[in-house]
Design a binder for these strands. Structure first.
Lengths: 211, 211
DNA sequence: GTCTATAACGCGATAGAC
DNA sequence: GTCTATCGCGTTATAGAC
């Protein structure tokens, strides 16, 4: 019980701090002092900083991929062929379902996902690829029938274009919203941004089938 | 002459190494030893690591924004209203014009631009915003007449969606191409990716005007 | 203008007491 | 399981010789 509490406190603090600053820029000293635990606790419970980083990802990715899988199966039971819009909807509603609509954790999560791609943490990309590669392949396999004209190369590239759009937007979410507020004088609601984002991605993806 | 050579050697090495590993992960020791100069030379010529990072960006952004400006003016002399496709074409051909078609420097450049957004270097984003903000605004101002139905908020968000798509793709260019080669067994030509990318962005941007 | 040598510091990790 | 104390290393930056 005391153990579990310490582990959870470390994960909570690490998740927020990593999302704010990145991995290399967040020291174990910062994490442990924010969590109110001893510096040695991270190495005791997780073994290393790398393992801690991986544990942060497991804690939010495991439930998320389960939820995505669940929604995919449910939707497939209702209709035989899923549309691009269906598939994008599954992603957003899964994130909402797991982390709560508009919560800080949802944006933290997207920012971490962005960092996983862009920061040089080879161990992390390897780990994520090994643990979640199958789930990603399964999700991507639904895109093929949804975009009938597309070749395999089209699918690969357009999928990653869309992934990039989402990851970039979400991982710079706060900075972009601040810029937008500065430009237009209005604070854009999260739902507006998400719906525009998915529309942008859907338009780009559909473009794959038309060439 | 000896000085200029040292400065250039440092910039050359730093540009490549930053693009490969990121800023925090590249030490001055690595840069100076790759450049074949003394460790102290960076602090002597640039003052600090932060200033070196900024100098790397200035060296390739200054000529690029000049070239973009030149092409914009030239195109505007030929036709009164520029299309979205025109504007995207200006970007890609400017990069090609400055750094050479398919050169390593062009991909280095995009990767660095991606890092500028995603790595936590607040000083760099501030510096870029101050030095190139006007040029960005000028370029973006051409988008408004190209997308007649869009509101100011539409424009802001769709522009940054497209920017994100490009930055994410280019900054992960090598990794994505390796994945694609692994998937399909073929090495995708750069031109194919760039043309698909711009088509994806154009489709997403046009979508802004239709809602 | 460029070098060597080193200061001053923060980092991850661990040994050993409790 | 948690603590203190510390090791060993890598970092940026600088002082001073040449």
């Amino acid at each position: 019980m005391a153990q579990k509490e310490t582990v959870e406190r470390i994960l909570d603090a690490a998740e927020v701090l990593f999302a704010e600053r990145g991995f290399a820029e967040t020291s174990l000293r910062t994490i442990t002092s924010a969590a109110g635990v001893n510096l040695a606790a991270v190495n005791y419970h997780f073994g290393s900083k790398k393992s801690l980083i991986q544990a942060v990802f497991v804690r939010f990715l495991d439930p998320l991929v389960d939820e995505i899988e669940r929604q995919l199966n449910q939707l497939q039971a209702e209709k035989e062929r899923l549309t691009v819009e269906d598939l994008l909807q599954v992603l957003t509603s899964s994130v909402y379902e797991i982390h709560g609509r508009g919560s800080n954790r949802a944006t933290s999560f997207m920012r971490l996902l962005g960092l996983a791609y862009t920061q040089s943490q080879a161990h992390l990309r390897k780990f994520i690829g090994e643990r979640y590669g199958n789930a990603f392949q399964h999700y991507a396999s639904h895109l093929k029938p949804a975009l009938p004209g597309a070749t395999a190369a089209d699918l690969f590239w357009h999928t990653h274009f869309a992934l990039g759009t989402a990851i970039f937007t979400m991982s710079n979410f706060d900075a972009l919203r601040a810029m937008s507020e500065n430009d237009t004088g209005e604070r854009t609601p999260v739902d507006f941004i998400v719906s525009r984002l998915t529309a942008f991605m859907a338009a780009g993806l559909h473009n794959a089938a038309h060439e």
